[in-house]
């Protein structure tokens, strides 16, 4: 019961607009958007931030943030972000991409952005399917996982094996901070928020390329309830995509909070 000696301790961050998202009920894109917005507010950098939206469910991210945004061609957000950052080196530039956008069509762009040590931050949302187009197999779909384009379960004989992006990019010398987190429960959500803040701090201090891979849920296309989807992340995805810090370069160490 709200009494007058109570004060707000949590409310919608300023960096988010009041537009209600189009995401499905329980889709954790919403959580990740909120975390980024909270960090932009806490670091006081909303006004000097430029976001680059992908093609995928989160293409409309630009409707939900009160900062400048560019909407990139499918897979090309890291290239577009490179162009933006090179002409505005004093701005904070981040891309927000799904697994189809980053790990399929955009593989070359993300690898080379990391190889160049591009001073951008990438928030890579891995929910193991192509969401916007209705749940097809993505590069991160688990072996045996049913999707609309692997209807009998991903057959590794035919469709090969999932990409572990964090491990892949950790090899790049130019990558300063590459970590994998998850948002399947409040504890991990808070850890994800720290990682987002670390990534943006690495960028602010010109320490190089930063990427946070975030395991996320897709209740609609997984055909589960929102709650079961988080269970799926925890029980099925985590074993295949272990959480952890895959690269923290020396250049980044002093800008990372544990």
């Amino acid at each position: 019961m709200l009494t007058d000696d109570m004060q707000v301790v949590y409310e919608c961050p300023d960096a988010l607009t009041d537009v209600i998202t189009h995401y499905c009920p329980g889709c954790t894109h919403g959580v990740i958007h909120r975390l980024i917005a909270e960090v932009l507010d806490e670091m006081g950098i909303r006004e000097k931030t430029i976001g680059v939206a992908p093609v995928g469910c989160s293409v409309f991210i630009y409707n939900y943030f009160d900062c400048d945004f560019a909407q990139a061609a499918h897979g090309r957000a890291p290239a577009m972000a490179t162009g933006l950052k090179r002409v505005h080196p004093d701005r904070v530039v981040f891309t927000y991409q799904g697994d189809g956008d980053l790990a399929a069509i955009g593989t070359a762009e993300i690898i080379h952005a990391a190889a160049r040590g591009e001073n951008i931050s990438v928030f890579f949302v891995n929910n193991a399917v192509y969401g916007m187009t209705g749940g097809q197999m993505a590069p991160t779909t688990l072996p045996g996982m049913k999707t609309t384009s692997s209807p009998t379960g991903r057959d590794v004989e035919l469709a090969g094996f999932p990409l572990r992006v964090s491990e892949l990019l950790a090899q790049m010398t130019g990558a300063a901070y590459v970590v994998r987190r998850s948002v399947h429960d409040p504890g991990n959500i808070n850890k994800t928020k720290k990682a987002i803040r670390n990534a943006l701090n690495v960028q602010l201090n010109q320490a190089g390329f930063s990427l946070v891979e975030i395991l996320s849920s897709c209740p609609t296309n997984w055909g589960t309830s929102a709650l079961d989807a988080l269970k799926f992340v925890k029980e099925q995805m985590l074993p295949f995509y272990p959480l952890g810090d895959y690269k923290v370069a020396d250049s980044a160490k002093s800008f990372i909070v544990g």
Binding site: R76, A79, M80, A81, T82, G83, A108
Partner: peptide, 13 residues
């Protein structure tokens, strides 16, 4: 492909 999208980014800026 990377090139033209970098142009797109810089020009958008």
């Amino acid at each position: 492909i990377g090139t033209i999208n970098m142009v797109y980014g810089a020009a958008s800026g």
